[in-house]
Design a binder for these strands. Structure first.
Lengths: 207, 207
DNA sequence: GATACATAGTTGCAGGTTGTTACAAAAATG
DNA sequence: CATTTTTGTAACAACCTGCAACTATGTATC
């Protein structure tokens, strides 16, 4: 089994395809062509076919790709077929929005714990979960086998929250706030940057 | 004046630098080296220096880059020194979170209009803005010179909301929902995909 | 069945991008 | 003045991408 590690670009594209396939599947379509995939992903169709053919010949000539089958194959390749538990820090508007949406659930991530510093919010229920105080994070992360922490706190609170996640031995921090976080060895920090992406899109519109 | 159009990669990196510079500036530091910029952006320091040197020699040898000066220069290069008006569709938890945060304001975007379909929310105030009914979108977008629309609506409502934005002649649609949107000529659609990005990060952790 | 069409798989190549290594130039420090 | 830091530059190899071309295999139509 060759099992070579994917390049950065390949992995990025595959997860993008997966995202699109998941939505396509939800919309009830069960077949998709590289052309359509290209329109939604912005990736050149030849590139898509090359990516997919290199990992196994998943398509049917003249027809396209079976959405659910391809979805399953890509999940295998990305090692993300299983369920993964995530902790959400911050139960303000943003945190609640994330907790109630399916963004993560659709992709096999289960929000398994909610944390807050505000004593008023601690103890309240959001869906099936009870909001816990941040002081319980170390134990909960260990008990529930959580490897991903999502930061949905105000920028000012972000560094402290990130450190709490690091202390709790979380491996991936997903930062919804704009704040810059210090990195720790062995911990991947991924920051969203909607404004940055908007600037990028705007540049190509303006020039 | 050479004024060449930036490559996709260059523009992406520059907007990333800009995002980091903005946060660095907010944190009160006014000098930054390519090494630190690299740690926060994930871009190779040589690449950073190459990018910046190619557009003008903004740094001081032995010292680094002046944060505010560099920020200004990059804004010029990206043609985003001015203010840009954006419309926000959806005033649920997510919409409110966006409206109250500084994510966009920090980068010169001003949220100039809020829209909803829910009659209960129409007329309520969020900050200085009054929530308007979606039916007013065409006129408002024209009057307030809005070129960017941000979708913060539930996935089911996203396609209709996107079409409303297209009808209103918005140029860039920024989609916070997971839904796939149909594209229209002359309109750039940019979809956030937190779960996709998380899958990507997870792959490198798991392999 | 024959024909046309759509679409995946495949190859070769030109061009662009990136990381690496190396080094010179300028500024700060002591 | 010597040392250190850090930018600016260059050259090169490795990699990646897009394009064009072509083959193979389904589907639809007549």
């Amino acid at each position: 089994m060759a099992e070579e590690r994917l390049s950065l670009g390949q992995a990025a594209r595959l997860s993008r395809y997966l995202q699109i396939l998941t939505q396509t599947s939800k919309a009830g379509r069960n077949n998709i062509s590289s052309k359509v995939l290209s329109e939604h992903s912005g990736v050149n169709p030849t590139q898509i076919r090359r990516d997919l053919a290199a990992l196994g010949k998943f398509g049917k000539r003249g027809v396209g790709y079976d959405v659910d089958y391809l979805k399953g194959q890509i999940k295998e390749i990305l090692h993300t077929s299983g369920q993964h538990n995530i902790a959400l820090l911050g139960c303000g508007n943003l945190g609640i929005a994330i907790a109630r949406s399916n963004v993560f659930a659709d992709h096999g991530f289960r929000i398994s714990a909610l944390f807050e510093t505000d004593p008023v919010k601690v103890g309240q229920k959001v869906g099936d979960l009870v909001v816990q105080h941040i002081s319980e994070i170390v134990e909960t992360v260990k008990d529930r086998n959580i490897i991903v922490g999502v930061l949905a706190v105000p920028p000012k609170a972000a560094p402290a929250a990130a450190n709490a996640l690091i202390d709790a031995n979380v491996k991936i921090i997903f930062n919804y706030s704009e704040a810059l976080l210090d990195t720790a060895p062995g911990v991947t920090v991924h920051s969203m940057s909607p404004a940055g992406e908007l600037l990028y899109a705007l540049y190509f519109y303006l020039s």
